[in-house]
Amino acid sequence: SDPSEDRAPESARVGNIPSSTSALKVPQLKVAESAQGPAAAHTTDTAGYNAMEESVSREKPELTASTERVNKRMSMVVSGLTPEEFMLVYKFARKHHITLTNLITEETTHVVMKTDAEFVCERTLKYFLGIAGGKWVVSYFWVTQSIKERKMLNEHDFEVRGDVVNGRNHQGPKRARESQDRKIFRGLEICCYGPFTNMPTDQLEWMVQLCGASVVKELSSFTLGTGVHPIVVVQPDAWTEDNGFHAIGQMCEAPVVTREWVLDSVALYQCQELDTYLIPQIPHSHY
């Protein structure tokens, strides 16, 4: 159930021909089969995070001529859309010479989310990475209204306002976009420790780096000194050995919190207090 199309920051360009055919990675995205229709094609874990990302398996898109002007500035990904909605975005992107990729990268400028009429969405990996990267996180209605009015409308009017977990109007995407000089995790050293489900560890690490944190791979690698705040992030329900995560405190002095601390902080683009996310640790033995 991992969102495989989000696994690594590679891009698939639509609308320009790469210098070599080997560089072309066409979105071959799968549809989750469901008797209840597209709305039930998501699996949500206890964290309220949509693990099964969206989309559609299609034939290789038709490439435009390399001489045609390509908008190098805009690059989009989509999240939560049905196959039909994805194809509408594809046509919109081609019309406006926008790069459409299946994986979010540093070059991505827009994340197009499936939302309700009030621009509230589910939480997906692309949603988190879009906010963390200060990108435009907009409703699919931006595409449909632009098509209806036959011009590209202003993104401000379609920015995602909230999500089904953290609140319907928290304005996290807007706050992140306007606060890239004040990253929420700066001054923190974060170790993403142990197993994680539904989200590859490297993507979680990239997320906290985008928010200004330094990533530490091992508990023994924390910088011990003033001005640096170490934090260990774990996902308790992913551990097979009972309560192993309670013993992390015996290996390092850092506070240990659940992954929800990261996800909530990123969604709201406000660093949350650790208290409600802390995992009790077995104290050091004193002999």
Rank of each mutant, 00 (worst) to 15 (best):
P3I: 11
P3S: 10
E5Q: 07
D6M: 14
R7C: 06
A8N: 10
A8C: 05
S11L: 09
N16K: 10
N16D: 07
N16R: 05
I17L: 07
S19E: 07
S22V: 07
A23H: 05
A23S: 12
K25I: 08
V26P: 10
P27V: 15
A35G: 05
G37F: 05
H42F: 06
H42Y: 06
T44V: 10
D45V: 07
G48V: 04
Y49F: 13
Y49P: 12
E53L: 03
S57Q: 10
E59L: 09
K60R: 10
E62P: 08
R69M: 02
V70D: 14
K72H: 13
M76Y: 03
G80C: 06
F86T: 04
V89K: 01
K91F: 04
K91V: 13
K91H: 09
H97S: 10
I98G: 06
L103D: 05
T105E: 14
E106V: 06
E107T: 15
T108P: 01
T108G: 00
T109L: 01
T109G: 01
V112L: 10
M113L: 05
M113E: 00
A117V: 07
A117S: 10
F119S: 08
T124Y: 00
Y127Q: 00
Y127A: 00
F128Y: 01
A132L: 01
K135V: 08
V137A: 01
V138I: 09
V138W: 00
Y140R: 01
F141Q: 15
W142F: 03
E149T: 14
E149S: 14
L153G: 02
E155T: 06
G162S: 01
V164L: 09
V164P: 05
V165L: 02
V165E: 03
N166Q: 01
N166V: 11
N166G: 07
H170L: 03
Q171P: 02
G172A: 04
K174P: 01
R175T: 08
R175P: 00
A176L: 01
S179G: 11
Q180I: 08
D181H: 08
R182L: 14
R186T: 14
L188R: 06
E189S: 03
E189W: 03
I190M: 12
C191T: 06
Y193N: 10
M199Q: 04
L204S: 02
M207L: 14
V208Q: 03
L210Y: 07
G212E: 10
A213M: 02
V216L: 14
S221V: 15
V228L: 14
E241T: 07
E241M: 15
N243E: 11
H246I: 09
H246M: 13
A247T: 09
A254Q: 13
A254S: 10
V257I: 10
V257W: 00
T258P: 07
T258Q: 15
E260D: 05
L263T: 05
Y269R: 11
Y269V: 13
C271A: 15
D275R: 14
T276R: 08
Y277L: 01
P280T: 14
P280R: 08
Q281D: 14
Q281L: 13
I282W: 14
P283Q: 04
P283S: 12
H284Q: 11
H284R: 14
S285Y: 02
S285W: 09
Y287P: 13
